[in-house]
Design a protein around this nucleic acid. Structure first.
Lengths: 147, 147
DNA sequence: TGATTTTGATTAGATATCAAATTATATAGT
DNA sequence: ACTATATAATTTGATATCTAATCAAAATCA
């Protein structure tokens, strides 16, 4: 039936899983919270980042700067982050997470947790454990290709 | 470092790979051609579909009907598909691929092919072969969860 | 039959994403 | 110092995607 090259089939499966996982994610998030915004909040908390420029954030997530501008504007309007001019570079800005942003992120994490038993009920941790290093390997190699 | 549950880490890797693959895909596609549109063209050719309603297509790709309406409109405007009223159901429509759509799809396939040696140069077919059934398994289970 | 519910498609209004173009500030080069 | 180039952010205009709301036609049911 599917006579695609192996790599395309793998990417196809990955695309479908990403879509399914994304739908599960969205279905439990608080109103208005998106994956893009959650990723930014998570970055600040998980890595203990205090301040970072939009350009650095765009690089970290491998998104274009206009995309970051757009997401950050919305997040600032929602009170999740704070943006100030960079005193040492007139072109740049510095983004930081607000305490409200931290709270919202905690809520998101809490909302995500109930998904785990659901996922584990159909996919064993054994399978996931086997998958993780294999996927990492592919990701790293593919990432290195971007040059 | 990353202290996430296994499942989240796996989904995270999958998300990154999907993004990287999507970028590679987009970089070789002819102007204006998107993954969404290519998927529709491919569906008609690969499965030998003659006519199918927008609702059926939306189901096949697990997208909402408004999303299909939007994509199909653009594709019709571009001459890739043809849309006619369903004579047997006054609400429905029937979509089919045009000969121009077939040609464009061939061009896309041809444009995609050079990616293969590039991918194979960093990821072995052995690794991909191992990954495919594992991913399929997860995809199927996750898909079944959608109920 | 007549009213209710379901289904197909669309429109409206979001967010995320990109490429191309613009503006402002820095940096480099001569 | 002055010009040319590079970098940061943004604006514009596109596509894909979603949810909610609308309209029309079909199917169900009372």
């Amino acid at each position: 039936m599917t006579n695609d090259p192996l790599a395309f089939e793998v990417f196809n499966e990955i695309g479908i899983i990403d879509q399914l996982a994304g739908t599960m994610f969205a279905s439990v998030m608080p109103a208005g919270m998106t994956q893009a915004q959650f990723t930014v909040l998570n970055h600040f908390v998980r890595l203990g980042v205090v301040e970072k420029s939009p350009a650095d954030l765009a690089n970290a997530f491998q998104l274009t700067r206009p995309t970051m501008t757009s997401t950050l504007s919305r997040m600032e309007r929602a009170g999740l982050i704070s943006i100030r001019p960079d005193p040492s570079d007139g072109r740049a800005k510095l983004v930081s997470i607000t305490s409200e942003g931290r709270e919202i992120r905690e809520n998101c994490i809490a909302a995500l947790m109930p998904l785990l038993p659901l996922i584990n009920s159909v996919v064993s941790n054994t399978d996931l454990s086997a998958l993780l290093p294999a996927l990492r390997k592919v990701r790293v190699k593919l990432d290195a290709l971007r040059d």
